[in-house]
Amino acid sequence: MTMMTSRARVRGLGSAKSGTEHWWTQRLSAISLAVLAPLFFIPFAIALGKPWDEVVTIYKHPFNAIVAAAFLLAVFHHMRLGLQVVIEDYIHAPALRTGLLIFVKLGSLLLGFAAAFSVAMIAFAV
């Protein structure tokens, strides 16, 4: 017997040693995206198809740049959590499943940071 309450044991320390964190961070990123997506997609729809210098001008605006960077980081986090669930549901071969989970986690981290860094480069350097 431990001296912990049932709730304290569940919070963050379930059988998977991560408790409800996956569920919770997915909701947090969902709430962020519900706000950020409209703010991101309007300038993005305007910029899409325009020549390079006009696109750069749009994303040199601090508001567009901050929204785009925050949106991209939230998107790739949310995408990683979502794809993880899809893989866990449908891919049963252990090696393939683990391989895909590693690929999705590392790939989304890399792409998310690269995309957000690119927005910063456009805003500051290009």
Binding site: L72, A114, A115, V119, I122
Partner: peptide
């Protein structure tokens, strides 16, 4: 979208 931003940052 990520590829689009990365390409814009390259040039």
């Amino acid at each position: 979208v990520a590829i689009w931003f990365i390409s814009a940052a390259i040039g």
